[in-house]
Design a protein around this nucleic acid. Structure first.
Lengths: 114, 114
DNA sequence: TATCATACCTAATGTGTCAAGGTATGATAT
DNA sequence: ATATCATACCTTGACACATTAGGTATGATA
């Protein structure tokens, strides 16, 4: 089974924000972080990743700045804003409510015994 | 906050299947069930509901039959198939894996204290 | 005979994701 | 020099699922 970003659909933005809440970071690194933190189960396609960044920046949830290290490919760093933190909080709240409901349907349905 | 079907996105089919696993039912009733079982938080739009049925039937996960009661508007009942049960099982498995990962990102991020 | 609840359905549009491209820098090997 | 790889960014077109906004029809009630 391969778990694509489709299973994360709708939560991508929040996941990126949650990572940025820890510290500023850039696309390539963030995606690697998701890959590792999910035990190599998930990673976003670059298209999804950068589309998400565009959306988040347009909405004012993150801001960006370039960082050109010496002997290093330029990186575009992102920083979460207050607005972004508020959005994240609300999303997490909705997420918990939604999963609670989904749980009532999908939770007791499967047979663990087999 | 209003919780629309977008938060259930991707899980609609599985939710319908899980209800049908309990017993055969029809669209209108199923949607009312979702509404009640979610404490009036969620319900599907009819378009989403019937689109989902079409998809599920096309894929062989459910079969349908009309039931014309006396003094009653005809109802289209749905019944889950073996294929549907297998799909449901797999979906639930993926769902658990996905929520586990999402949890690692969104779980410890929010401040309950405020 | 008008209106409401029940009960089904479709077409057009929107949103997020993916597949498949592209550009450019720095390191390494030939 | 130049080929190749890893890093690092970005865009376009297509697709899947959900929504908005309609539509049809029956039975009960006013």
């Amino acid at each position: 089974m391969d778990l694509t970003g489709d299973l994360l659909r709708g939560h991508t933005d929040a996941i990126l924000l949650s990572i940025l809440q820890t510290q500023d970071s850039y696309g390539y690194e963030i995606n690697q972080r998701i890959f590792k933190q999910s035990n190599q189960l998930f990673s976003l396609t670059e298209a999804t990743l950068y589309t998400s960044f565009k959306r988040l920046e347009k909405d004012g949830y993150i801001v960006s700045y370039w960082k050109d290290g010496i002997n290093q490919v330029p990186r575009k760093y992102y920083s979460i804003t207050i607005l972004g933190q508020e959005y994240l909080k609300k999303h997490i709240d909705s997420y918990h409510k939604a999963t609670a409901v989904i749980q009532t349907f999908l939770g007791g349905t499967h047979g663990k015994e087999d």
